[in-house]
Design a protein around this nucleic acid. Structure first.
Lengths: 329, 329
DNA sequence: CCGCACGATGTTTACGTAAACATTGCACTG
DNA sequence: CAGTGCAATGTTTACGTAAACATCGTGCGG
């Protein structure tokens, strides 16, 4: 900066004013400074800026994996909205889905130069008293019911699942089987709860759910099991990948979808409309998730206040060709 | 830090020594300092650290989207390996796949406090003379042939495509159709080139390729076209999503896969093994990609030298159930 | 028993920026 | 034409840390 000032024949402060776009610099001066900056290839040093300003203009995103569609799309939306607000995002991978892994990630978060953080983690990993948030770092949590402690933004899991199950029942199915995500997942738990409660509200017996792990393979395994149960005419899978596995299993066992069995997924990944048959599924608005996360953290950062509470992002059922009335009708 | 020093009854420098794990501090002193840190909830200020040390321990990742499997899995691997080396990663989304979008991203990169960067972009967006790299920022490029200018790490696209095409020819197919990715994609171009050259080396005519856009929908559209061509018995799709679309189109048109038509994809996304039928595809090792990217940038950062050149990550064909000899045999 | 060497700790300083305050000069008013 | 006010620019200082150098004390060899 000093070099630029010298070359432009002004003070360092004027250079600073130009580089921050401050008003009160006459055009001719500004032009000189800009020329000098260009000639010397000057770039403001962000560390010094952050030090001086006391803010980093960076948001940390803590997550365990980017491999799930939901996470990667949420992160993408977060990155885009943050960029629009002039914030960068830093990914902080959680080494292992354990208390220690989370603890380590939070430690790094604290050392990292971040004004706020978005935590995309199963909540039960968060409730440890050992985790101390870096002071001054505002946090927003996704996929969690910690609404009384943290600020939470989440997809309306329950409503999505309700729509799925009601859709199947309204087609005439006697009941709906369910393939869940892993037990550790809050989202999966919510969806299962909603599934159970809708069945209960219609006085239908809830078959024992089959526990999957989000992978298509686990859906396939579940499908092999369900295919042999002639009473099974409708399955609600907790995500689209598992639904894909179901479709394959039913196809291999000669059970026609949707003729004999209907399948509904969750997420509406882009591929879902090209499954065989095209999948009826619950659409999640990941872009909106990201937008609200960013909006919420930024509000907290700017106000320096934490307001616990949960924001729900609505879902909607997308009807395609994997659902139909049961064969008996 | 001053407060901690006062409470512990030592100098600020000693606090610094403890917090950086410097040797030469007697245990009793260290314990006092640590206690004081804990009591006051002290966290080192990373901006000041970065300013003093002249490094940020952060790597920027420039990309256009996280929505493709390849990108998100590569980023995940990058994040994990970087974390292992004590580096954080910052995502810099490119607003639009245009020169201006890229330019903006590079500008932000320069302001961002980053020791190096990994650029996951189509190369033709990079060759603008308007793009000036921030001095001192080392760059590694993915999905590009800019090996003479930048350091490039990439999947061995050509070899993967060659394996796919050779596999189909060795099954007895007279020729192989091809559904490409978007014209702007370097990876797609490479795969198409390899497809063409293998056909040429076997003296087979290359049918006109169909241009897709990576989406399953575009694969479906291509499939509808190909299904009506009775001479088409084998298709190589440039990614798995488009292969999925092909499968649906063929199924809808009553063309049995693999009985009448064989399909090969590229990427080996986790879902591919649960397609109908399970997809033969070229496996990409994204984790290895990420590892090499990080390794390469870090080497550059540490040596402060740029060594142009290309590192290729090998691929391998995974044979599943979507390929078989052509019906005539 | 003196002095030297080394280990432990303290003091000074600089990293690059921007806020706060100081100064300059010019236009406009009475 | 002097005085006033404001716009443009300059000067000083502090942000939190860690390297470099300075100091202190202790143990050991001669």
């Amino acid at each position: 900066m000093a070099d630029v000032a010298r070359l432009a024949g002004v003070s360092a402060q004027t250079v600073s004013r130009v580089s921050t776009g401050h008003p009160g610099v006459i055009d001719s001066t500004r032009a000189q400074v800009l020329a000098a900056m260009k000639e010397l290839g000057y770039r403001p040093n962000s560390a010094a800026r952050a030090l001086k300003r006391g803010e980093f203009r960076t948001i940390g995103v803590l997550l365990f994996t980017l491999a799930t569609t939901g996470n990667s799309r949420t992160v993408e939306a977060i990155a885009n909205h943050a960029a629009r607000e002039g914030y960068a995002i830093t990914i902080i991978p959680v080494a292992a889905p354990t208390q220690d892994g989370v603890l380590g990630a939070f430690t790094r978060l604290g050392e990292l130069g971040v004004d706020g953080a978005i935590v995309i983690l199963e909540v039960h990993l968060l409730d440890s008293t050992r985790i101390t948030l870096p002071p001054g770092v505002q946090v927003v949590v996704v996929d969690s019911d910690a609404g009384d402690t943290y600020t939470v933004v989440d997809t309306d899991q329950a409503d999505g699942a309700r729509q799925a199950v009601r859709h199947l029942l309204s087609l005439g199915h006697a009941t709906v089987h369910h393939v869940t995500g892993p037990a550790s997942s809050f989202a999966s738990e919510r969806r299962a709860d909603a599934w159970r409660s809708v069945l209960a509200s219609f006085d239908r017996a809830a078959p024992a759910p089959i526990v999957g792990d989000w992978s298509a393979d686990s859906g396939y395994a579940a499908g092999l099991q369900l295919a042999d149960d002639p009473s099974c005419t409708a399955v609600f899978a907790s995500n689209d990948q598992m639904a894909l596995g179901l479709l394959r299993a039913f196809q291999e066992r000669g059970r026609n979808v949707p003729g004999e069995i209907s399948v509904v997924g969750f997420d509406d990944i882009p591929e879902a409309r090209n499954f065989l048959p095209p999948l009826t599924t619950v659409h999640q608005d990941f872009a909106e998730m990201g937008r609200r996360c960013v909006q919420t953290v930024l509000r907290q950062i700017r106000n320096e206040v934490t307001t616990p509470g949960t924001t729900l992002v609505p879902t909607r059922l997308v009807e395609r060709s994997s659902t139909a009335p049961p064969p008996s009708l």
